[in-house]
């Protein structure tokens, strides 16, 4: 069961002690379609992570409201609504392995579900299921999470989130600090889970290839505002706009632009993957 996310004129900032930050998010209104895989891109400090934190009330809207499925979070009703929202939204932070704490992997995975009232026996079953789902052996369940390798820790932490059976998955650069192979594995896993469960997924990323390859919608943020929302093809078609927002092009698109310049031709479509580019080149009779 997936859910739609709806933001209405949301303004938010952080307060750290006596220092109140300037507005991090400025009157944002948007709708994330139910069942969509949305990539959130933008430069550092543009408010991407803050946008994610709105979804489960880790950051509360100072003005406006955030509707997650049937739950509406406002500053006034935060106490009740936030708990409801957190049950539905699974959040994978940057370097999620830093949240591991329990004596065994199993207990760590069971932590989330049990906080939301899942009985112990059922939580155990879920743990067994998700550990297999992230591609780890069930024998790892009885080990200490601190005895694992870095990559394994990352998978265990993600399993801990998946175990909450969220309807909405929000991820803040889940593949940060991994090697290219590890990155692909993590992203493929997330994408498969998204498809299988029909989740609504929001992914913050710096990697435009991830956005081009996995997302069916891209949100571009700049200085606390959404400056673009639409399909990846649409975004990467406008090369000058992409550069103006301080973003890169996906590898294939970059190559396409270069080829077009060198050969003085224009291919009929925007190519986001190398396969698409190869096909387009054959079609145009250039290869």
């Amino acid at each position: 069961m997936a859910m739609q996310i709806n933001l209405q004129e949301v303004t938010a900032d952080y307060q750290a002690g006596p220092i109140r930050s300037p507005e991090i998010l400025k009157s944002i209104s948007t709708t994330i379609k139910s069942g969509s895989f949305t990539a959130v891109v933008g430069q550092t400090g543009s408010g991407k992570s803050s946008l994610l934190k709105l979804m489960n009330g880790l950051l509360l809207p100072k003005k406006g409201e955030v509707a997650v499925g049937e739950v509406t979070i406002t500053l006034e009703n935060a106490k009740q609504s936030v708990k409801e929202a957190r049950r539905k939204v699974g959040m994978v932070f940057q370097f999620p392995e830093s949240q591991l704490f329990a004596e065994t992997v199993e207990k760590d995975i069971m932590f989330g579900p049990m906080n939301f009232g899942v009985p112990e026996a059922e939580a155990k079953e879920i743990a067994l299921e998700v550990i297999g789902r992230v591609g780890l052996d069930a024998s790892i369940l009885s080990k200490s999470p601190f005895s694992l390798s870095g990559g394994q820790k990352r998978y265990v932490a993600m399993a801990g989130i998946l175990a909450m059976r969220p309807d909405i998955l929000v991820l803040d650069e889940p593949d940060a600090g991994l090697d290219p192979k590890g990155k692909k594995e993590v992203m493929d896993l997330i994408h498969a889970w998204h498809k299988e469960r029909g989740l609504t997924t929001l992914l913050v990323t710096h990697d435009m290839d991830d956005a081009a390859y996995y997302a069916d919608e891209v949100v571009v943020m700049e200085e606390g505002r959404i400056v673009f929302q639409g399909e990846p093809e649409q975004l990467f078609a406008d090369v000058s706009a992409v550069h103006q927002w301080g973003l890169e092009l996906p590898q294939a698109r970059k190559l396409q632009v270069k080829l077009e310049q060198e050969a003085g031709v224009t291919l009929p479509q925007v190519c986001l993957t190398l396969d698409q580019l190869a096909d387009a080149l054959v079609e145009a009779g250039l290869a």
Partner: peptide
């Protein structure tokens, strides 16, 4: 934040 997101 991470633990609050996990329901604590």
């Amino acid at each position: 934040d991470a633990q609050r997101a996990r329901g604590i």
